[in-house]
Amino acid sequence: MTIPPATIRFSGVGQVFRTRTGTVEALRSVDMSIDRHEFVAVLGPSGCGKSTLLRLTSGLLKPTRGTVEVFGLEITEPRDDIGIVFQRPTLLPWASIEDNVVFPVRHKTGRVTTQDRETARALLEKVSLKGFENRLPDELSGGMQQRVGIARALFMDPDILLMDEPFSALDALTREEMGFELLRIWEDRPKTVMFITHSIGEAVLLADRVLVMSERPGIVVENLKIDLPRPRNMETSNHKLMHDYVGHLRSLLLKRAA
């Protein structure tokens, strides 16, 4: 019997950046893995190397030490089966919403088929943006723009979705709404998700597991499984375990900060 390999596995990963003023050790030694279709939130203080984890997984960055494997293969360059959602939506201001969603295929191959356009329209409907296909990004609110960013990341139907504090620029209410919407999409079409955040509540509410990073140089200091029932919704926020998890993580982060 073979054990199925984890979707994402970090083994002794260290990352050192060279800057003008010297070197910065972003990651000391990170060991962790994420299983197939697991939703994992990475939590930590700002500047702790959370985004570095994401860039290493995407193949945009090579680790200084250790190995990063995706589907059992060491990652040496970006893969086609990974979608990225950034902190800012960063849409193309001159392109319509639909053109922004099909942008990955236009950029990669130079061609957009009618099939691609149908896929894009279906995705826009899924992120509740039906009827906005021909608008320009400027005409949409921040939350709506980030939905377009999510649709763009989902366009190639990736197995892995990397999200770098995707909702941190949104107001609290929109943020919560977007979280549940993301869960609906994820439950509908399961994907392995690495979700970077600095919000404890958001991490607990969304994830199957929360990894806590230390401040720089980063290591994983906590690996907390979240046993809250799914599907999660507004009710979940009132679940009695929710308070325990949030309390535990908060005291952990506060203790480390002190």
Partner: peptide, 13 residues
């Protein structure tokens, strides 16, 4: 925006 350059690199365009 650096994100779009990263997007481009991640697509290996």
């Amino acid at each position: 925006p650096p994100e779009l350059i990263e997007l481009s690199r991640s697509l290996r365009a």
